[in-house]
Design a protein around this nucleic acid. Sequence first.
DNA 1: AAAAAATAGGTGTATATACACGTAAAAATA
DNA 2: TATTTTTACGTGTATATACACCTATTTTTT
Lengths: 165, 165
Amino acid sequence: MNVYTYICVVKLEQAIQSTKFKSEVQKAGLNILYTAWWLKTVISKELKEFGLTHEQYNVLRILKGKYPEQMCVRDIACRMIEKSSNVPRIIDRLELKKLVKRSTSALDKRETVITLTQGGISILDASTIMVNNITDELLAITEKDAGHLNLLLEKVRATEKNLVP
Amino acid sequence: MNVYTYICVVKLEQAIQSTKFKSEVQKAGLNILYTAWWLKTVISKELKEFGLTHEQYNVLRILKGKYPEQMCVRDIACRMIEKSSNVPRIIDRLELKKLVKRSTSALDKRETVITLTQGGISILDASTIMVNNITDELLAITEKDAGHLNLLLEKVRATEKNLVP
DNA sequence: AAAAAATAGGTGTATATACACGTAAAAATA
DNA sequence: TATTTTTACGTGTATATACACCTATTTTTT
């Protein structure tokens, strides 16, 4: 039983070998974490073909969203799915592969502006088609169910508890 | 706008500053990834009080599930939520903090068996109460909705595509 | 205008992830 | 029984996460 085997396991109970959950709410917490791992793992495996990590792909996709406008590091960071991503370091790797270019903003010298290169655009276009196809094939769910799932996830995050310190 | 601010943002559109999703299915993919990040981040912040990372907590909890039986590294690994976790290394850190003990199995000398120490049990008991409380407070969802969410997540993972290479 | 505060982004460190590979032991096979 | 294969686990490496801190700017306040 290896990682690949798990990708085909559907039941949470089987995936984490646990049958006793305190409540459906507690189970939902684990289910969300496990499903995210599963999704990320499958997509990352496919992205390897393009020499990209999931996070590098994310940064490129964010840049494409504003293209041909440039974006500063901060703008990219606040669009990342995982907010604690260290964007300067991810950009280091993209720059090494010549997929983006860094330069200092003329208006505000504190800002570093990032531009997609032609190479970056090519790789992104090819990988986006693949990721979109994989996602559609992978997520075995109707549009209606997906809409419902989106509502429930938003409900999940609608906590009363104010966690800002 | 920092990480703490995001924890209180409910709408996915606002969280990742993106309004155009190709479909509800595509949006659901991002929603699952974002919700998992959000949940993991909040719980990790609380676990810092006990000097534990989310993954270290996970290993301790798995060990507790079989306690007072010992478990080998492999058994722990296949119960992890994130299957690609490097369990020997996580155990290194737990051992340094004297929360677990390693020894070689007498029956199969390849196996390393792991035992919770008294210290490990104490920390785990205290942190488990906290994590369960936080989860219940945090996940603003009824048992019925949670049940529905669990069904939908299972549906999501019920792909036809066989990804085992 | 000068001083203080805030902001942008780079960098250091510990931990984790993802994956490849090595070694010892056990199991399977010849 | 000897050889091969498999298994369990540790370890090395690149990347990412989480967080703290530093420096150069810009903005705000005095």
